[in-house]
């Protein structure tokens, strides 16, 4: 059963995504902020991380940056979730190494489809 780390500071949205993914047959672990996300990523080594861009303590982009410089974690696919739809954020996320990007408000079906897609991806041989 694939493990998904969900970093989302809004409890209801976290519950919602978690419910959908759990129903879809995934194990979901939850982080409330950026610090916790980094911590849990290191401890649990999830198969996928869903990262909210705007979180207290550390922003999603900062968490992404830290994951990508950690050799043990850099290969875990990351999908950014954010309310900011500006191209600047999309570019920041994708350049920072995220495999995908979902803008709030999103459709849960779309989210789970993207999650499945990301999980099926071959881990990149070398990641920059």
């Amino acid at each position: 059963m694939p493990t998904i780390l969900l970093a989302e500071d809004d409890k209801q949205i976290g519950d919602m995504i978690s419910f959908k993914l759990t129903n879809g047959g995934h194990r979901v672990i939850r982080a409330q902020d950026g610090e916790q996300a980094c911590l849990l990523a290191g401890q649990e080594r999830p198969d996928l991380i869903l990262l909210d861009a705007m979180m207290p303590s550390l922003s999603g982009f900062e968490v992404l940056r830290r994951l990508k410089i950690d050799p043990n974690l850099r290969n875990i696919p990351v999908i950014m979730v954010t309310a900011k739809g500006h191209e600047r954020d999309v570019l920041t996320g994708l350049r920072g190494g995220a495999v995908d990007y979902i803008v709030k408000p999103f459709s849960l079906k779309e989210l789970s489809a993207r999650v499945e897609l990301a999980l099926r991806r071959e881990p990149p041989a070398t990641a920059s």
């Binding site: 919602m16 959908k20 705007m54 709030k104 408000p105």
Partner: peptide, 20 residues
């Protein structure tokens, strides 16, 4: 940006739960 975030977050919850 902040307003946009604050508006979209509850909207995401509403939409998501309805969808569920």
């Amino acid at each position: 940006g902040t307003v946009s975030h604050e508006l979209r977050t509850p909207l995401t919850a509403i939409k998501g739960f309805i969808e569920l």
